[in-house]
Write a protein that binds this DNA or RNA. Structure first.
Lengths: 98, 98
DNA sequence: CTATTTAACTTTGAAAAACAAAGTACTTTT
DNA sequence: AAAAGTACTTTGTTTTTCAAAGTTAAATAG
């Protein structure tokens, strides 16, 4: 037998980053505030998790305006989609010995 | 919409505890050393994660002997099985908006 | 029978991660 | 002009993770 957790991505150990990614898989663009409210997080906490995902190039930021009001949105990258899928596959493989 | 990560169990955020549980779901008894080798962990690290799972009453310890040599094995409890299943269901629900 | 090794820990301490709170810059609403 | 919202950054605390070393007791080797 081989290590069943070896293929899990460490970045997705965090429930919050998992939540962000799962939201971005289904919505191709989500705002900072929407994420914050949905996941019930403080600004700083969300920002730092988003930063981790951005560093890994799993998500991309879009700074724009709605009229003249700033509006920041996030979307998943191709790499992010791939890594997330790989993680879910690893998870499934791990538990599908059921 | 409601918080998609609210139903995830914090105890299972850890890849290691996730791995232990997934192994105990399929094998009704596993030894300390087997877990250690399978998950590639140091004694202390594994022991502390097992302790967390034991505190939560998700696993049970069996201290026995093979001849006169000590042999410690672990098994999943009913509560553990239930909590793990609930976690997996929550995970599935979260990502099955695909 | 003494020394080394193995099993299953506990203890200690360091490093990393998570997190809240406050501060910042800019804008919009009142 | 004052208050409030957006999207952060900074600071500092708390929590979690983990490795390393020490511990106890038994097994095996020499």
């Amino acid at each position: 037998m081989k290590n069943p957790i070896a293929d899990l991505n460490k970045i997705f150990d965090s429930r919050i980053r998992l939540g962000v990614m799962s939201m971005l898989v289904v919505n191709n663009e989500i705002g900072f505030n929407d994420l914050k409210q949905m996941l019930e997080l403080t600004d700083g906490n969300l920002a730092s998790h988003l930063n981790t995902l951005e560093q890994a190039e799993f998500i991309k930021v879009h700074k724009g305006f709605i009229g003249r009001k700033t509006s920041t949105t996030y979307s998943i990258t191709a790499l992010g989609k791939q890594a997330f899928k790989a993680h879910l596959d690893a998870l499934e493989k791990m538990i599908k010995k059921l």
